[in-house]
Nucleic acid binder design. Structure first.
Length: 322
DNA sequence: TGGCATGAGGGGTTTACGTCA
DNA sequence: ACTGACGTAAACCCCTCATGC
């Protein structure tokens, strides 16, 4: 620990030697501070410093930048050195000097500490304490900032999730009603028309082409996967082959059961299938940079596309749908 | 007079360094 | 000469309190 003697000795040593000493690393910037501080322009308003300056400055103690001769010579201060030290705030100039130093480097090298203490007329111990408190309170503020930022991100994500969930529900209902209509129509028709199972929505479109997203009855960019039951293979490739070689090769041909469109939405996937999907269809891990407000702002343009081009969504959106 | 900001004390931990078997 | 255990000092972090505004 720093005894008073040690502090004084260090101070004298620093005064003699450190001025011309090259401080390491980031201290280059601070050198300018030292130089600037050595021609004092600071004013210590009133009697503000907590330091009993006589302790560290000895007889020639009136030439430091933060020492005001008036202050030391005032009658008011006669009692200051008799009474036990009262805690006093650092002067604005002292704080400003420390703040500038802290901006450059929030850790305190011993040499810097002594140099700082000399420049602003504090004890090195006080400088160290100021740095400790400053770090602690900076950390607290930073934590608050981080918390707010994370909370904001969470809220946005939750809103997105909720809207997607809602949309998913609507699509499910739509599929359900279409399925019912289809079944009704099949029941009402004679068996001589086996191939006419095309969805009403698809009427008029080319059989092997998926509907363009603009044709989708839903305003979102989620592609509607609709295909003829007797052409499931081509439909599958239309849906999956653009960016997903795993599904273009037919390996997962059992993945979609044409007779049950609810499979499309993944609700009946086995765990293995879901795992495969998650592995194979997941976008690159760095696909959304959440801390980037700007990119996140873009996402808000369409809460359904999650920042991906439409053509990419066909390959990875499915696992997200419950 | 209560609340906030801030200087400082104290305890525990970490790290660097010297000593010794 | 090398190495691991041990002691020590300094710095740091965290919690807390006291004081000034």
């Amino acid at each position: 620990m720093e005894s008073g003697g040690m502090v004084f000795d260090s101070f004298k040593l620093t005064s003699l030697s450190l001025k011309n000493e090259k401080l390491p690393s980031s201290s280059d910037v601070l050198d300018s501070l030292w130089i600037a501080g050595s021609s004092p322009s600071f004013h210590v308003p009133g009697s503000t410093s907590i330091v009993n300056f006589e302790d560290i400055r000895g007889e020639n103690s009136t030439d430091g930048p933060f020492f005001d001769k008036e202050e030391n010579g005032s009658e008011d201060c006669d009692g200051c050195f008799r009474q036990p030290e009262k805690k006093r705030r650092l002067s604005p100039d002292q704080v400003q000097f420390l703040e500038k130093s802290f901006e450059v480097e929030n850790k305190l090298e011993p040499e810097r500490k002594i140099q700082l203490a000399k420049e602003i007329g504090l004890q090195p111990r006080q400088v160290a304490i100021w740095y400790q408190n400053r770090r602690a309170r900076y950390k607290t503020k930073q934590l608050e900032k981080d918390y707010n930022s994370l909370k904001e991100t969470y809220d946005k994500l939750k809103a997105d999730h909720d809207s997607l969930f809602k949309e998913n529900e609507e699509l499910r209902n739509e599929v359900h009603s279409l399925k019912e209509k289809l079944q009704e129509r099949e029941k009402g028709k004679p068996k001589s028309e086996p191939c006419d199972t095309t969805s009403p929505l698809e009427a008029g479109s080319e059989p092997n082409k998926p509907l363009p997203s603009s044709v989708s009855p839903n305003a979102s960019n989620i592609p509607m996967v609709i295909y003829k039951q007797d052409d499931a293979t081509s439909a599958k490739s239309d849906v999956f082959d653009s960016d997903s070689p795993h599904y273009a090769d037919g390996i997962h041909s059992s993945f979609i059961e044409p007779s049950d469109s609810s499979h499309i939405f993944g609700s009946d996937f086995s765990q293995d299938e879901e795992d495969n999907l998650s592995r194979n269809l997941m976008p690159p891990p760095s696909f959304v940079k959440l801390e980037d407000d700007e990119s996140y702002g873009d996402l808000q343009m369409n809460s359904c596309n999650l920042g991906f081009p439409v053509e990419d969504q066909t390959t990875w959106l499915w696992p997200l749908i419950e």
